[in-house]
């Protein structure tokens, strides 16, 4: 596929940023400062970046509980994300959502989602709005092998087919829905084949190969922009860490993990672009250093950032919190 040097450098920078971000969270989670459940995307970078490399801010994505990679690939600011994951006031969502609920509408990131299968109907609705408004914007709907079994996903695929919506369904098949293998939970095990039943083109790609993903994504997105309807991509990938931080990963064997790690998407990208003389290794090294510094700064800032204020409990529940319900906050002494 044809990508100019700048695009390749940018794709590498985003994949590297996701990896650095997630590795850092994995390391720091044990410290106990990060609240809630955290699901890391490390290993799957080529999928989010392969898709989002083709998008602009006017295009939308929907995400999952494993959403950090999608955010970074779509251009969401890592400092805001890190503060959000630490539950701090300057976070992307003012520290109210944490890891599983990061959203940034300015970047077309419609939200990570704690509910498996929460994204597809939302993606279809955003696509229908893009179509009705007469834009050529598209929506990428990221979900996992687990969500491929949810009714909402199948309902969304049907609607997208019926209304020829500009959606690309991207199933990130990382092998396991929480702790259960897709070989057990997905009837037929061929997730891509399901989409053909809804009358849309569907392809399975090596999700650890950035170029394979980007090529399939380019075709699907162009098709959606032309008004020809949805496409389905099953990206076969792997998550390096557990379902959540703290998962003992008793359900995978180390040999399997090693076989996927040996095909690491970042190493392969680096190998491909340097061996073909597309980007110098030194330039990639410089990106590694800059990204490491960026994430270090994001963590430092997140740690020193203030907690959400008490008032934040009543903001953004409604446009204006109903005065008739406000009394309960004023009536009792509140421990701060």
């Amino acid at each position: 596929m044809d990508m100019d040097r700048n695009s390749l450098v940018e794709a590498y920078r985003r994949m590297r940023t996701i990896r650095e971000f997630e590795d850092r969270l994995h390391k720091d989670f044990a410290g106990g400062e990060i609240p809630g459940f955290v699901h890391l995307y490390a290993g799957e970078e080529a999928v989010a970046v392969g898709l989002c490399s083709h998008l602009g801010d006017g295009d939308f994505i929907t995400s999952t509980h494993r959403g950090h990679g999608h955010c970074i690939a779509k251009g969401v600011d890592t400092a805001g994300m890190m503060a959000e994951i630490y539950g701090k006031a300057p976070g992307s969502c003012n520290g109210k959502g944490g890891s599983m609920h990061i959203a940034d509408v300015d970047k077309g990131m419609l939200g990570a989602n704690g509910i498996v299968g929460g994204g597809p109907p939302l993606a279809c609705g955003a696509a229908l709005s893009a179509k009705k408004r007469g834009t050529d914007n598209v929506v990428i709907c990221f979900f996992g092998d687990g969500a491929s079994n949810q009714g909402t996903t199948l309902e969304g695929m049907n609607l997208a087919g019926v209304w020829k919506l500009p959606v690309v369904f991207v199933c990130e098949n990382n092998g396991y829905a929480e702790t259960t293998s897709y070989k057990y939970s997905v009837s037929g095990t061929d997730i891509a084949a399901r989409a053909r039943g809804f009358g849309m083109p569907s392809v399975a790609v090596d999700g650890l190969d950035f170029f394979a993903v980007a090529e399939a994504a380019g075709e699907a997105i162009a098709r959606a922009r032309r008004g020809e309807g949805p496409t389905f991509i099953e990206a076969q990938t792997y998550r390096y860490y557990g379902h959540f931080e703290g998962d003992s990963i008793a359900y995978r064997d180390r040999e399997e993990e090693e076989s996927f790690r040996s095909r690491d998407c970042l190493s392969r990208f680096r190998q491909t672009v340097t061996s073909q003389g597309l980007v110098e290794a030194a330039d990639l090294d410089a990106i590694d250093g800059a990204v490491a510094a960026e994430i270090e700064q994001a963590v430092t800032d997140a740690l020193s950032a203030p907690d959400p204020s008490l008032d934040s409990l009543t903001t953004d529940v409604y446009v204006d919190f109903p005065a008739s319900q406000l009394w309960m906050f004023q009536d009792e002494p509140v421990r701060v």
């Binding site: 701090k88 109210k96 944490g98 009543t314």
Partner: peptide, 12 residues
């Protein structure tokens, strides 16, 4: 009467 908050406001 609000959405359940993240950890830092949980005690409130």
């Amino acid at each position: 009467d609000t959405i359940f908050p993240l950890k830092r406001s949980e005690h409130v």
